[in-house]
């Protein structure tokens, strides 16, 4: 592999672009494949097969050839509402697991660059914040403020947009009150039941890093269920 190619791969990963690395195992040549960019001419004759492998997001050697394809898909986006203590640990876990992280918190003193270096922070109320970001079925929401003014609008957005994971921090009682408020706002039981609340799998620990771990474990398990 050429150094130039390595740099381009890292650049693409940082830009969260979907691409594939194509390697000819017979002569060691490799190139990057992107959907709307012409394919390196040395690989032209495998074009259709590479394209089909890329669309299936499969890694492996194309049958009957010596061409190895490795696809890089866009990371799953996690939106954290509430730049609280637990969020600081969630950011660490999420980085190691290669999730894309974004924090929403209208309270400037919580969501500061000092507390969250290198993370995208939106210092706005969830309603305005969601106007700035694209979300889809591959997005997760972790609501941590347990303040209905901040959490509820975010939860409503996540339910309406079919996020694959929606979790909300708070005791059973807090969660039951939350569910009542959502019902009053016209959400059905079927929609409300999709919220993981109280958030996280039961580990027993109550410290911020332990709660962050229990949330991350739940989220990853949901990734593989869907």
């Amino acid at each position: 592999m050429k150094k130039k190619l390595l740099n381009k791969i890292i650049e693409n990963k940082e830009k969260k672009i979907e691409f594939a690395i194509i390697t000819n195992l017979k002569n060691g040549e490799s190139c990057i494949f992107e959907k709307n960019t012409p394919l390196d001419k040395n690989f032209e004759k495998y074009k259709d097969k590479i394209f089909s492998q890329f669309n299936k997001k499969n890694n492996g050697i194309i049958e009957g050839t010596e061409i190895f394809v490795e696809t890089y898909i866009r990371p799953i986006k996690i939106i954290i509402v509430g730049a609280v203590h637990i969020a600081q640990y969630l950011v660490d876990f999420a980085k190691n697991l290669n999730f894309e992280i974004l924090i929403i918190d209208p309270r400037g003193y919580f969501a500061s660059k000092k507390r969250f270096p290198k993370v995208k922070i939106i210092n706005k109320w969830p309603k305005e914040a969601f106007n700035e970001i694209t979300t889809d079925q591959n997005t997760a929401l972790i609501a941590l403020t347990h303040d209905p003014k901040i959490d509820d609008p975010a939860l409503q957005h996540a339910i309406k947009n079919n996020f694959f994971y929606i979790g909300a921090l708070g005791s059973k009682k807090t969660h039951s009150n939350r569910c009542d408020r959502l019902k009053k706002n016209g959400f059905t039981n079927e929609q409300i039941i999709k919220i993981y609340g109280p958030i996280g799998i039961k580990l027993g620990g109550r410290s911020a890093p332990e709660i962050a771990l229990s949330i991350m474990a739940q989220l990853v398990s949901v990734v593989y269920k869907k």
């Binding site: 990963k13 990371p75 799953i76 290669n98 990734v223």
Partner: peptide, 9 residues
């Protein structure tokens, strides 16, 4: 669902 777990190697 697929994730893009990547070990930064």
């Amino acid at each position: 669902m697929k994730n893009s777990f990547d070990e930064k190697i």
